[in-house]
């Protein structure tokens, strides 16, 4: 235990963060509800990038200035750990929705099981997964879905390898081998970026050729929300990796003190694990 836990003096970043996040929320709300508000949304998004740069720069400088002790390190670790747990629960909501629809709601709409009387709504409907024909035909399902053994399989290999390369980089950091650290971190980042490019190609193909869109019934809804939020998290993770790379190039992090690197690695592994769930339950089964 220490007697010098670092309590920062006043900081302007949180209130600026509130303003830009508020601007984003108002802009997005106004755009969706009443069709105007784009300037607020864009200003907010730019502002978020600005705040994250400034706030994290302060934290990095404090850390490099030796203000943090091992107790502070534990606060950060616990904070990051619980943040990732909150992310797990966010994805759990979408996986829960997927399983509920597949296991309960669709069979009931088809007249099976305990609540089969709902079959009276659309007597011609027959449940299947992937759901190619929605109960109300005017909504319509996708004409086809993504074959899991093509691009998604490649993406799985990419992300799993990237977790391995990141772990190699981490071990290199702990062994003080800076060149190896840099190279394997670059490899991880490249794998992540290729993943995102392939995901983009897959989305274009789904949207333009397979009729698999957000509007394509519940299959399209769950497919795009699950893979979309995952892709967003890969993007965030890639930005984190890029920042880590810059810091590595600047000579930050020591063999025994590199919380930011570990936090980024935890996040990346978490994103990887979510993908395994997606590959299995969205693409394969």
């Amino acid at each position: 235990m220490t007697s010098q836990y670092y309590v920062p003096p006043t900081s302007k970043w949180p209130i600026i963060a509130v303003v830009v996040l508020g601007s984003t929320a108002v802009g997005a709300g106004a755009l969706m509800s009443y069709g105007s508000g784009l300037p607020f949304l864009l200003a907010g998004l730019v502002g978020i990038a600005f705040v994250m740069y400034g706030w994290f720069r302060d934290v990095v400088n404090e850390s490099m200035g030796g203000l943090y002790d091992s107790q502070m390190d534990r606060s950060f670790r616990q904070g990051m750990g619980w943040f990732i747990f909150s992310e797990v629960m966010f994805f759990a909501a979408f996986f829960g929705a997927l399983f509920y629809i597949r296991v309960f709601a669709l069979p009931w709409l088809d007249g099976q099981g305990a609540k089969g009387i709902t079959a009276l709504l659309w007597p011609d409907f027959s449940a299947s997964w992937p759901l190619m024909q929605t109960p109300d035909p005017s909504i319509g399902g996708p004409q086809a879905i993504i074959n899991p053994w093509t691009l998604p399989l490649i993406n799985t290999l990419l992300l799993v390898s990237s977790s391995v390369t990141l772990t190699i980089a981490h071990h290199a950091l702990k062994a003080g081998e800076r060149v190896k650290l840099r190279n394997w971190l670059i490899a991880t980042l490249v794998l992540g970026l290729v993943f995102l490019v392939i995901q983009g190609i897959e989305y274009v193909e789904a949207w333009t050729q397979l009729g698999l869109t957000l509007q394509a019934g519940i299959y399209g809804s769950t497919f795009f929300l699950l893979t979309g939020f995952h892709g967003l998290h890969v993007t965030i993770g890639a930005i984190v990796l890029a920042v880590l790379l810059v810091r590595v190039l600047k000579g930050h992090f020591s063999a025994d003190n590199h919380f930011a690197f570990e936090a980024g690695a935890w996040y990346w592994h978490f994103v990887d694990v979510v993908w395994i769930g997606l590959f299995l339950f969205v693409y394969v089964f």
Binding site: A97, Y100, I101, F104, A105, L106, L109, T118, L121, W122, L131, T134, P135, D136, S138, I139, G141, L214, Q215, G217, I218, Y219, G220, S221, T222, F224, L225
Partner: peptide
């Protein structure tokens, strides 16, 4: 999307 719309397979 159709999360809460049975017509699209949601509930």
């Amino acid at each position: 999307t159709s999360f809460f719309d049975a017509a699209g397979g949601g509930d």
